[in-house]
Design a protein around this nucleic acid. Structure first.
Lengths: 217, 217
DNA sequence: GGAGAAATAAGTAAAAATACTTATCTCTTG
DNA sequence: CAAGAGATAAGTATTTTTACTTATTTCTCC
């Protein structure tokens, strides 16, 4: 007999986690081995547990899903991490895929998609919410159409990370402390973000970030 | 024997709804009689069903939770509506209470709070997430202290005018020029706005303004 | 007509952001 | 292994915001 799939849940909404846990337990070949509310907790717990598939929320207070995914995969490259997001935004999708996620599920998926995500990623493939297919194929066709528009102004992962903290109201110094880098580096990132986004100041940035669904309000 | 409590779920995230439904079904005196993804759907469905308690999300595409609550209570004043929110924000809380909600639950509550919310509201009382108690008692004591300060924190028209310009990304000097007043006056207004809204800086202000619908993005 | 609220204005000082530049280090990719 | 991109860091100078305070004028409301 095959052993159970060991699943971890990382999401800051306890109720959502509890609900998902209940839904997952309906499959008796699934076993939820971790159920935590933050990226930090998960990274701390990871060395002590055996996990196959992680459902990872993107927006969480403190360490977000992107950073947690990166760190988790450094520790355990064989982990299958499935992103759980409110929005099927290109930016989020790209960010998480670049961080090494194996799947992307919208929170308004139905439970069959969750099961499918586990089964598919366990088989070594990637899984995406069916609702995402439209926007994905759009991107694909754009890429294959040869226009190759490289979007020079796309924010890097780190820049997005900085921008999210800016939107939370942290000063550059506070962001520096939080990310363990120099304030001057944050200054530089922020200047680059302003340049790339065509924004003039903080107020513009927050509006930009919200419009582009980089932060949820 | 008492009859079951009939519950409706209104939330745009299918997965969350399904999870919550599962959790609620563990109480065999509860019965989920509606499970919809938007305010419109709920209002449409309401005349055809018997409901006691509604769990209502605030932010939904289309008709939001506030509007749906108002309309539902017009149709059925005896409904007990419990708000489900990501945030324990004063503003959201006040808004929903003004719309007639009987309870306010954070999405990171645990399931016992959900059960408690049903039981409490069915008994005719109001229920609030324990995480909210801090900010609520603060408000209560302010009210009961007899000062009768009718929401001292309401922004004046001029302050709202300033805030809107801030959100557009104008500097205080630019706002001053635009409104034909001194930059120092704008400074002062801005400081008062920060104080009243409890914000720390521009980023917070923009988020506040958007949440409070003072600006559209 | 007087009380109180709101808008106006200013001084001073400190903190933060912005505009420039340059220079490593690391990682990926051809 | 070389090239390029991204993250890191720092110098310097200017502009902007923020935190304190006080004071005058112009409203409206009772």
């Amino acid at each position: 007999m095959t052993r159970n799939v060991r699943i971890a849940l990382v999401d800051d909404h306890t109720l959502f986690r509890t609900g998902l846990r209940g839904l997952l337990s309906q499959r008796d070949d699934f076993e939820v081995v971790a159920d935590v509310g933050s990226g930090e907790e998960f990274i701390e717990l990871l060395p002590t547990i055996d996990v196959d598939v992680v459902f990872m929320d993107i927006s969480m207070p403190g360490m977000d899903g992107a950073e947690a995914t990166r760190r988790a995969l450094q520790l355990r490259p064989e982990l299958r991490i499935v992103t759980l997001s409110m929005y099927g935004d290109d930016h989020y999708y790209t960010l998480m895929m670049e961080c090494g996620a194996s799947g992307f599920l919208l929170k308004d998926s139905d439970i069959d998609e969750v099961y499918a995500a586990v089964d598919t990623t366990m088989a070594g493939d990637s899984y995406f919410s069916s609702a995402l297919l439209g926007s994905l194929t759009r991107n694909m066709s754009r890429l294959s159409s040869g226009i190759e528009e490289e979007d020079d102004d796309a924010l890097s992962d780190r820049e997005i990370e900085i921008l999210v903290e800016v939107c939370r109201g942290l000063s550059n110094q506070e962001i520096a402390d939080k990310l363990f880098i120099s304030k001057r580096t944050v200054d530089k990132h922020r200047a680059n973000i302003l340049e790339k986004t065509g924004c003039k100041n903080t107020a513009n940035l927050v509006v930009y970030a919200i419009k582009n669904r980089l932060v949820e309000i």
